[in-house]
Simulated scan of single mutants.
Amino acid sequence: MDLSTTWIFCSFFLSSILVLAQVSRVSANAEGDALSALKNNLADPNGVLQSWDPTLVNPCTWFHVTCNNKNSVTRVDLGNANLSGQLSPQLGFLPNLQYLELYSNDITGRIPNELGNLTSLVSLDLYLNSLTGPIPDTLGKLKRLRFLRLNNNSLTGEIPMSLTTIETLQVLDLSNNQLTGQIPINGSFQRFTPISFDHNRLDPLPVSPPPPLPPSSASSSRENKNDTTTRRGGDGVTFLTSLFSLYFSLKPHTIFSTENALKFSKMERERSLGNKWEGRKIKGKVEWQMNFSILEFVR
């Protein structure tokens, strides 16, 4: 290989490295520009964003920003940072962003439609702010989203049906807003309870009648017991009536009284416990007695 060929090869190699570096820097700078636009839209009395220097090669050295091994932004953590102002549409230029945490601030204005471009987003936490306007329908494009918390704002309009198509959605909180219209009950929204929609102006969900309860074994047992008690009671009444007739036919001089009735009633109860009646002859008369373990009644 002559000297000219070697020089051409080295020049091509160096040029390739410079091009790749420039592409990487442009990409990083694009994300840095997106975050710088957010910073310019926010008031920061506590200097939380002081390290966000747009002249740096990439934003991966900024506080509250996390990047992957390719120097692309994956997290923005600015929750409870005493920030105020509005969200920037340029946030949609963070293609690898997974977590956007801006909760518990005083951010006003609308949620940018451009947030629907963050297709890698897993968590969108904008709760406890002063956001107004509708929930963007474009958020339905976030097919990896698992956590969507927009509660405690002043959002208006209807809940976008597109949100029900996010099958990965696990946590949803739209409570404490001014949303109107119907609550979707299809798709991923089937797994959420009314708590997710509390304190809005939404139409109440239709109340479904509760399913009939199957008969329990305890109630069946009670019914059977009642049936048995009724049958036994009927037999006891029949037996007691016959006993009265027989007794007074044998003892016509016996006066029917409450005391006698109670005695027979007690004898009937003992009979139902397994005792028995038996007759015997004493001096030409038939006497009746009941064998008791404690009480013996012979007239």
Rank of each mutant, 00 (worst) to 15 (best):
M1V: 12
D2C: 05
D2I: 02
T5W: 04
T6H: 07
W7P: 02
I8T: 10
C10Y: 08
S11H: 07
S11L: 11
S11I: 06
F12R: 09
F13T: 06
I17K: 08
L18M: 07
R25Q: 11
N29T: 06
E31D: 03
E31N: 01
N40E: 12
A43I: 15
D44V: 00
D44N: 05
D44H: 04
P45Y: 04
P45S: 06
G47E: 03
L49R: 02
L49C: 02
S51R: 06
S51T: 13
W52D: 08
P54Q: 07
T61P: 06
W62A: 03
V73G: 02
V73Y: 01
V76I: 15
V76S: 05
D77K: 05
D77S: 14
L78W: 04
L87M: 14
S88W: 00
P89C: 07
Q90E: 14
L91K: 00
L91C: 04
G92I: 01
Y99N: 15
L102Q: 00
S104P: 00
R110H: 15
I111W: 04
L115P: 02
N117A: 10
L118P: 01
T119N: 08
S120H: 09
S120N: 14
V122E: 09
S130R: 15
T132C: 04
T132I: 14
G133R: 03
G133C: 06
G133P: 01
I135Q: 01
P136V: 03
D137E: 11
D137H: 08
L139D: 01
K141S: 13
M161T: 08
I166M: 00
T168C: 05
Q170G: 10
Q170R: 08
V171C: 13
D173I: 02
D173K: 04
S175N: 03
N177H: 03
T180N: 06
T180K: 09
G181V: 00
I183W: 00
P184K: 01
G187W: 04
G187D: 03
S188D: 07
Q190N: 05
Q190K: 08
F192D: 02
T193D: 12
H199C: 09
L202E: 07
V207D: 10
P209D: 03
P210H: 07
A218R: 12
R222Y: 08
E223Y: 10
N224S: 12
T230G: 14
G236S: 15
G236V: 11
G236R: 09
S242C: 12
S242Y: 12
Y247G: 05
Y247A: 12
Y247S: 10
L250P: 05
K251C: 10
P252F: 05
T254I: 06
I255F: 06
S257I: 01
N260A: 13
K263W: 05
F264I: 11
S265Y: 09
R269A: 07
R269M: 06
R271G: 04
S272C: 09
G274C: 06
V286Q: 15
Q289A: 13
M290C: 07
N291V: 15
E296L: 12
V298D: 15
